[in-house]
């Protein structure tokens, strides 16, 4: 496997009337071909913005990619001109969004919407593209596909609309599919349908995938690697087994502790993370999690307030996998495990 995508020190800010929003503050990660990366974080953690930035979809103004590189197959996407980027977006990298109702155009038939990218990127004519669109709808499990090409989005249910979005995303055989909370608006039984579908199609199309979510349960089932974000920074990253079974960062530990489990009777009290997520209008000097961190409080670490901890590799159980995290406590004292 070779590296498909390399994101280096990405910084994104929004200059609004209410001040500068420090949305993404130095995010670096890479993605292998065919790999699934799960990005987990709460609202405002910068998980969606960092992916919009690599698609070149940050609205500007007010947004601005301040620095960083996004290297996709040897090219830095951030330096491309808009028309060059347009050839990549939808063709090489496709994206599916959270709310299938607002991301489909309500006044165009879904046939028109799916065939648009086929005509643009693949140079197909109407007959060819309609046939391909029907095949795609069939592939994502929409019955009576050819006839439904002429239906409008409101004639589909939420789950069916998300299937249409997936069909659009897959239409040009992308190498990378970015899914931004694709199942958050759906019920659990429909979520299970969509997850099964995406898993199966991912193997069929041999795509790499970035799955953005706030639901730790969802990524546990699909991601090879997990990256936990907070306050526009990566807190911890590693194989999903490492991150869930041997979590090191106080935030990840706290997050997992605060989740009740379906498979155990919940007698004991949930451990809670005190305080609330950071206001992104203040540039965090040190670790963004410092105000809520119980490890910092226990150890009375002053450094957490003043200096950003670097992302460093921590030795894991097997020693083979890369487990990366950004925390002063673990690096210096090796205490996060005992919390």
């Amino acid at each position: 496997m070779s590296t498909l995508l390399e994101v280096n020190d990405l910084v994104v800010r929004f200059y609004t009337q209410e001040g500068t929003v420090y949305a993404v503050n130095g995010v670096s990660f890479d993605l292998e071909e065919g790999e699934t990366l799960g990005i987990v974080g709460e609202s405002g953690s910068g998980k969606s913005v960092s992916c919009l930035a690599l698609m070149g979809l940050i609205p500007s103004p007010p947004g601005k990619v301040e620095s960083g590189t996004v290297v996709f197959e040897g090219r830095d996407l951030l330096t491309l001109k808009p028309d060059q980027m347009r050839l990549i977006r939808g063709k090489e990298i496709a994206m599916i969004f959270q709310d299938p109702m607002t991301s489909l155009n309500p006044v165009l038939t879904i046939g028109t919407q799916i065939t648009e990218s086929l005509k643009l990127h693949e140079g197909m004519n109407t007959t060819q593209s309609r046939k391909r669109a029907a095949d795609l709808l069939d592939l994502v499990g929409i019955p009576d596909a050819y006839r439904r090409l002429d239906d409008y989005p409101h004639q589909f249910s939420g789950g069916m609309r998300q299937r249409v979005m997936i069909a659009m995303g897959l239409s040009c055989n992308p190498k990378l599919l970015i899914a931004d909370e694709p199942t958050t608006a759906l019920d659990v039984t429909i979520q299970a349908q969509i997850i099964e579908l995406v898993k199966q199609l991912k193997d069929e199309f041999n795509m790499a995938m970035i799955w953005i979510t706030h639901d730790l349960g969802v990524v546990a089932g699909i991601a090879d690697r997990i990256q936990v974000m907070y306050g526009g920074r990566i807190m911890e990253s590693g194989s999903s087994h490492e991150v869930f079974r041997d979590s090191r960062h106080p935030y990840t530990v706290g997050l997992l502790g605060s989740l009740p489990r379906l498979d155990s009777s919940g007698e004991e009290k949930l451990t809670q993370i005190e305080g609330s997520p950071p206001d992104m209008r203040n540039e965090p000097e040190g670790c963004p999690f410092a105000p809520r961190c119980d490890v910092r409080e226990q150890l009375q670490l002053e450094k957490c307030w003043d200096e950003r901890p670097p992302l460093e590799t921590v030795p894991d159980a097997s020693g083979a996998e890369a487990h990366i995290m950004s925390c002063w406590a673990d690096i210096r004292e090796g205490v996060a495990e005992n919390v």
Binding site: D187, A192, D215, L216, A220, F244, R245
Partner: peptide, 27 residues
């Protein structure tokens, strides 16, 4: 049964070994 089996569990080991009952269609 289907509803419970559709709920994801935040543990990759449990997730890898789960049998899902996927019910088709919508409400």
């Amino acid at each position: 049964q289907a509803l419970l089996s559709a709920v994801p569990v935040p543990d990759p080991v449990v997730e890898d070994n789960r049998q899902r009952i996927i019910i088709s269609g919508d409400l």
